[in-house]
């Protein structure tokens, strides 16, 4: 199973980025093989609008089933929900800690956006 974690850095010790659409990047972790893939999000950091939608598209293109982040807005959430991705929010610490927290069932799966949209 592939899990994406929004983060600042390209390894397991990188800090979780609490933002989703405007996260620095995503570390994609294959929990079966322990393979890592870093997906930068630089393009969306500069986006005038729709950063969340395109960040969601990026992690979906990597074939993820689970996303871990701090907060997520309504449009990005709609895209991930449509694609059947499970979204866990409120993560902090390092990517490694976030993955452990997921395994220990300490993260909350969210059924809705956790922050208001950027403009409606």
């Amino acid at each position: 199973m592939k899990v994406a974690v929004s983060c600042i850095g390209d390894n397991l010790d990188a800090a979780v980025d609490p933002r989703f659409g405007r996260a620095q990047g995503f570390l994609i972790v294959d929990t079966d093989t322990a393979a890592l893939q870093y997906v930068p999000n630089a393009q969306n950091l500069q986006a005038v609008q729709g950063a969340g939608i395109q960040a969601a598209q990026n992690v979906l293109n990597a074939g993820i089933e689970v996303l871990i982040t701090g907060n997520i807005g309504p449009k990005a959430f709609r895209v991930l929900q449509e694609a059947g991705v499970r979204v866990y929010t409120g993560a902090s610490g390092s990517v490694r800690q976030a993955l452990e927290a997921l395994q220990d069932n300490q993260l909350l799966e969210t059924s809705q956006a956790t922050k208001p949209g950027h403009w409606m």
Binding site: Q49, I53, Q54
Partner: peptide, 10 residues
């Protein structure tokens, strides 16, 4: 305008 997302089936 970043208004489109293309998913595997939609």
């Amino acid at each position: 305008f970043n208004a489109i997302a293309v998913l595997p089936k939609s």
